[in-house]
Design a protein around this nucleic acid. Structure first.
Length: 376
DNA sequence: TCTGGGGTCCTAGGACCC
DNA sequence: TCTGGGGTCCTAGGACCC
């Protein structure tokens, strides 16, 4: 049973789900025209970052490539994406670069070039929008397609061929009768294939699997569910939403039960995502020992965030600072601005003020600055 | 396996007001 | 003087995802 790769590129969609719990119920048809079925396709690019690098550096094709951080395998960063060749050596996303270098010293280590990946992602999304489908982008390398028709495998094959022809990139496609099942199907489709999961084979596929296989349930939640004697997907599906809610929260509890039942959305949202916040953070290869250095770094991060805010062209309502002390104790503080602004001087002053609230007396491993926008 | 960077949303407690 | 309940805002932390 392939467990989905826990780390891949940005832009989460999971946390948008609970709010829409009312919409999680199967659409009262999913069938608008008789004989035509609503399908969701989850298109997921294979080893995206590594593939983009291999595409622009053809000499890297077929070689182990590891993308992450600043590309220095000795630095305190982790692997963002490993090519399939590198995965053969046990290198995978989320692994410390140092360990990756030990497992696969002959790999080519490259720094993450986010603008390049954003551009490549846009190329792919443009191809997807060329089909008669509703496209919901959920990350650099992922999108849901909503489509009413009879042969989703045929559509998936067309999509894959077109993406390959127009961008040189390979993708896998999960097919489902909702977002969750499509997404979960993709794990079986990788790399480059197609797999279909619907209400008809949901429990046959996942019923006896641990709850942690579900997209949206991590190790912490899996453990809490186990304390309620809920171990498998089928057991979760049969659980009382209110009982689970008493333990895991009034929204999340019922949401988890719905996941066990394989529920998901059937309507995609094509309108572009509006970011809620922008943040920048840095982990230092050598911990910062003095507070003057900390404040200097806060200024640097604040300026980067201000640049992002300016590019976004929206006002900031709140400024937050994150401090991770050695060895790994993380604290966050934040402040609502007296009035929304995008003035870099005001944002910097706020970040410095918040930073001043933290204990000054321990080595600092990471600093971060975050700006939260006023609601659009 | 000493654990990145960039995000989203939920939860819960306290402040404050009516 | 003491008490209530509800609503909203602010804040810190937690969990999860790519």
């Amino acid at each position: 049973m392939p467990r989905p790769d826990p780390h891949r590129e940005p832009r989460s969609e999971l946390r948008r789900e609970p709010r829409r719990a009312h919409a999680l119920r199967e659409a009262p048809g999913g069938r608008h025209d008789p004989g035509v079925t609503r399908w969701v396709l989850h298109v997921d690019l294979d080893q995206f970052l590594a593939a983009v690098e291999q595409r622009r550096h053809p000499e890297l094709a077929g070689r182990p490539v590891v993308v992450g951080g600043n590309g220095d395998p000795a630095s305190r960063t982790v692997v963002a994406t490993a090519s399939y060749e590198a995965r053969e050596f046990g290198v995978h996303s989320g692994m410390p670069m140092r360990l990756a270098a030990r497992r696969c010293p002959q790999a080519v280590f490259l720094p993450a070039d986010n603008p390049a990946y954003e551009a490549a992602s846009e190329e792919v999304m443009a191809v997807l929008r060329g089909f008669a489908v509703v496209v919901e982008v959920i990350g650099w390398d992922e999108a849901f397609l909503q489509w009413d028709g009879d042969d989703p495998e045929a559509l998936a094959a067309e999509v894959r061929a077109e993406v390959r022809a127009r961008t040189g990139l390979s993708c896998a496609t999960g097919i489902g009768d909702n977002t969750l099942r499509a997404k979960m199907a993709t794990a079986f489709a990788k790399p480059g294939g197609v797999h279909r999961i619907t209400a008809g084979n949901w429990f046959a596929t996942f019923g006896t699997e641990p709850t942690g296989v579900l997209h949206g349930i991590g190790t912490k939640t899996e453990r809490k569910l186990a304390e309620l004697c809920i171990h498998t997907v089928a057991q979760l599906a049969e659980s009382s939403p209110t009982a689970v809610g008493e333990r895991l929260g009034p929204r999340m509890g019922p949401y988890y039960v719905s996941l066990g039942r394989g529920m998901g959305r059937t309507e995609m949202e094509a309108t572009p995502w509006v970011p809620r916040s922008r943040s920048r953070e840095t982990t230092f290869d050598v911990n910062l020992e003095n507070w003057t250095a900390v404040l200097a770094e806060i200024r640097v991060l604040s300026a980067r965030v201000s640049g992002d805010v300016e590019a976004e062209g929206r006002d900031v309502a709140r400024v937050g600072v994150k401090v991770r002390y050695a060895p790994f104790l993380t604290r966050t503080r934040s402040l609502t601005l007296p009035a929304p602004t995008r003035d870099p001087a005001v944002l910097e002053a706020a970040a410095l003020e918040v930073a001043g609230w933290f204990p000054h007396d321990r080595p600092v491993r990471l600093l971060g600055v975050r700006a939260e926008f006023t609601p659009a």
